[in-house]
């Protein structure tokens, strides 16, 4: 994802802004990292350049 996307994305739960932590960047594209809600603290992974902003209970790795 491009860093500029931060201007228009938000936490799916409470719609607050997200903080970005980059783990891998290539040619300006963020390939891996974490988005963290500045309000509720929920974290969302960026994998293969695609942020996963599904609500946590819809994620594949949702804890049972």
């Amino acid at each position: 994802m491009k860093e500029s996307l931060l201007d228009i994305i938000c936490c799916p739960l409470d719609k607050h802004d997200l903080d970005l932590a980059v783990e891998d960047r290539e040619d300006g594209e963020i390939l891996a990292g974490t988005l963290t809600c500045t309000d509720c603290g929920e974290t969302y992974p960026i994998e293969d350049g695609i942020p996963n902003l599904l609500p946590p209970d819809m994620r594949e790795d949702a804890p049972a």
Partner: peptide
Amino acid sequence: SFLQGDAAALPVT
């Protein structure tokens, strides 16, 4: 740009 999200809980400002 593409992102994974739920239509009923859009992660969009």
